[in-house]
Nucleic acid binder design. Sequence first.
DNA 1: CACTGAGTTCAGTTCATACTGAAACTCACG
DNA 2: CGTGAGTTTCAGTATGAACTGAACTCAGTG
Lengths: 151, 151
Amino acid sequence: MADDERLREWAEQVAMYLARDGVPPIAGRILGRLMVCDPPEQSAAQLSAAIGASRASLTMNLRLLTGMGFLTWRTRPGDRTMYYRMADDAWQAVVRKQIAGIAAFLDVTRQGLDLLGPESDRAARVRQAHDTYAWMAKVFDDAPPIGQEER
Amino acid sequence: MADDERLREWAEQVAMYLARDGVPPIAGRILGRLMVCDPPEQSAAQLSAAIGASRASLTMNLRLLTGMGFLTWRTRPGDRTMYYRMADDAWQAVVRKQIAGIAAFLDVTRQGLDLLGPESDRAARVRQAHDTYAWMAKVFDDAPPIGQEER
DNA sequence: CACTGAGTTCAGTTCATACTGAAACTCACG
DNA sequence: CGTGAGTTTCAGTATGAACTGAACTCAGTG
């Protein structure tokens, strides 16, 4: 019966993970909540009650998550309430962002290599970083598309 | 001749990137600096001057970076000064940490799947996240070791 | 045995960010 | 129109992280 409590804790874990990527705590809790709530579509008021944050905070963070592509919403005829749900590709978006981070850093290392000559000992240190990230980028390039994996 | 200025800016870019992983700004600047400085080994005092941070901050952040495995240091006979340098596998360590993050999140999603039954609509939402991260984990598992890539 | 130059520690300050309460706003419905 | 259920905005507060200054310790030197 402490089932609700467990779900709350689980959503918190999700939030803590997302916090590493700079997602504010409440936004993380919202996404976590929307992964396990029933029904899958919830109003700001419901979410506010579920995670214990102010409605104002919900407005802000729902807007943020929606803008990031993690959430979608719809309204129902004759009902002003907005119902939010997790976007189908929410987590692929998270991953896409992380992969984009690799490319961003490759830009930095490339600039570094340009700044220093190609021959110096210093360039070797920069190249070390560059090669490591180039490896990662290549790994993803060569990877099969995101089909279904085993559990 | 604004060469030093350029290097400083470059180190700053490195720092900003690392900040995304929760590395404090000054620690990031130190690592960035140690990638492009000459000679490769520098004392806390030299680094302090180069990046414009207090010695106290240097002590803290050098300790942090060393503990994380990004830096090594040595002393010279008859000289109390510690000379720091970038560890050879500094950037592989960064990458390793990121990959570990994937596994950590897989633990969370697995817990979620256990909490909800296997059949519910809710579980499908969690599985979506799980599958995405499982895909990433697999990509790295199947990847060739980190040999040398083309520039 | 004082002096210098190095590293360490810690309390305090600064700064950014997230969150909240309260007021303003909007729209469907009577 | 007016009312109420909903959302949005905004100013203020709280919290926490990071950095610094200043006091301290310690090893080697003249």
